[in-house]
């Protein structure tokens, strides 16, 4: 464990808590893409199956349980509890166009052709594009509530911090995992446009408004 990975995990934790609080406090999931949240639930389910087979550390186990629980809770809040506030019209990204390529790529490019490894690889590829429905929705609505943009900033930073973690681990432990690194870079690059808007607008107190 290193400071980059720890702050990355905490940024990830913060993002999930921000989202849950936003939906729970405002009793509304307006502006939130349910499809992205479904993808995240799939990502954590397929990645954390080793929860039942391998004990790494208390931290590792607790975080996996939290990510799994919170992702399903978020999907529940969006599609069941507050479904009246779910914005069907703007959450229209075809997630099958993200899931299928991730399945195919995981079958083609992986470290080992075993069920757990293929599922882990699939979850890594899917996570790199899981935010697209949310970014697509923000572009369609042309704006995002500031709380939603804080959520996106924390979520985007988490994998960006992981990239620093991978540089650190390569330099210090000469350990690296190309699949995770390439997917992590793609994932972080997808946020770049948003990061620019966040830093130039939201941090100046303005609303996140995309140029029409």
């Amino acid at each position: 464990m290193n400071i980059f990975r720890l702050t990355g995990d905490l940024a990830h934790l913060l993002a999930i808590i921000i989202l849950l609080l936003k939906i729970w406090k405002t009793r509304s999931c307006a502006g939130i893409s349910g499809k992205s949240q479904i993808l995240f639930a799939i990502v954590y389910t397929t990645r954390y199956l080793d929860l039942v087979t391998t004990y790494v550390s208390a931290y590792n186990t607790l975080m996996k349980i939290f990510f799994l629980g919170s992702s399903f809770a978020t999907v529940y809040l969006i599609y069941v509890k507050f479904k009246a506030t779910y914005d069907h019209n703007h959450d229209t990204f075809r997630i099958e166009f993200l899931i299928l390529p991730a399945v195919i790529l995981a079958l083609l490019i992986n470290h080992a052709f075993t069920p757990l490894e293929i599922l882990w690889t699939f979850s890594i590829y899917l996570e790199s594009v899981a935010i697209l429905p949310q970014l697509f929705m923000v572009s369609k609505t042309g704006e995002a509530e500031s709380i939603t943009s804080h959520y996106l900033f924390a979520l985007g930073s988490y994998r960006g911090l992981y990239i620093l973690n991978w540089i650190y681990r390569y330099a210090m432990e000469s350990h690296y995992d190309l699949i995770a690194i390439v997917a992590g870079i793609v994932q972080t690059v997808l946020y770049c446009d948003f990061f620019y808007l966040y830093i130039t607008k939201v941090l100046k107190g303005k609303k996140l408004q995309l140029p029409a």
Binding site: H12, T53, V56, L116, W120, N165, H175
Partner: peptide, 10 residues
């Protein structure tokens, strides 16, 4: 671990 090193990451 089952996967070897590296999967200790979340």
């Amino acid at each position: 671990y089952i996967f070897g090193t590296g999967k200790d990451e979340l």
